[in-house]
Computed example of a mutant assay.
Amino acid sequence: MNKEDFTPMGVQKKLVAFYAQDELTRQVQIDYLQKDFRAAIKASFYLAPDQEEWFDMLDDTFIFVLSRQLAVTLTLELPVHLVKPEKPASGTTVLGVKRGDSHNPIYTSAGAGEKPLAEGEFIFTITY
């Protein structure tokens, strides 16, 4: 697995490569993401030491929710975006997740035996 920079462009490169894989390979990676989100992210992206430390200190419940939301997004093959401005010299880092233009959930529908149709996106926002 090739690592990418933890930037909006790096996330898009990973997403394109992820969706180009067969369904079984994607599902194995989604399962790994849900079992050990921190390790999956570190295996996928280059993180600076302070980013790794910050990431490791995030609340476990938040990581659980985040990993499940991302897993649903990837399973339904929806867009994922990272919004990450340049970090200032000092300040606090805040991480949040936004679904859609107005914080909407992912909407799905399917008939019996049909693949689900879905709309929405996963927006991962880091602010300082």
Rank of each mutant, 00 (worst) to 15 (best):
D59Y: 00
E23M: 08
F37R: 03
M1A: 12
S102I: 07
W54L: 08
P85G: 08
V11F: 09
F122C: 03
D101N: 12
G96V: 01
D56M: 06
K13L: 12
T108A: 07
G96T: 14
Q51G: 12
V80F: 09
K35G: 00
N2H: 06
G100F: 11
Q34C: 12
I126M: 10
E77K: 15
T127A: 06
P105L: 07
H81W: 05
P79M: 02
V72D: 00
S67G: 03
K3F: 07
K115V: 13
K84W: 00
F18Y: 08
T93Q: 13
P116V: 11
T108M: 15
Y128I: 03
M1F: 07
T127D: 00
Q21E: 13
E119T: 11
S102N: 15
D31K: 14
Y32E: 14
N2Y: 01
F122L: 07
P79I: 01
G96L: 10
L47H: 11
M57E: 13
A20N: 14
N2R: 13
S102R: 00
G91E: 06
Q12W: 03
L117E: 12
F124L: 15
V16S: 07
L66Y: 04
Q21T: 07
F124G: 05
Q21I: 03
F124Y: 15
V65S: 05
F62V: 04
A20K: 13
D101P: 07
V83N: 08
T93D: 01
W54I: 02
G100E: 10
K42G: 04
E119R: 12
G111S: 11
Q12F: 05
L117H: 11
A112N: 09
V16N: 07
I41P: 03
Q51R: 02
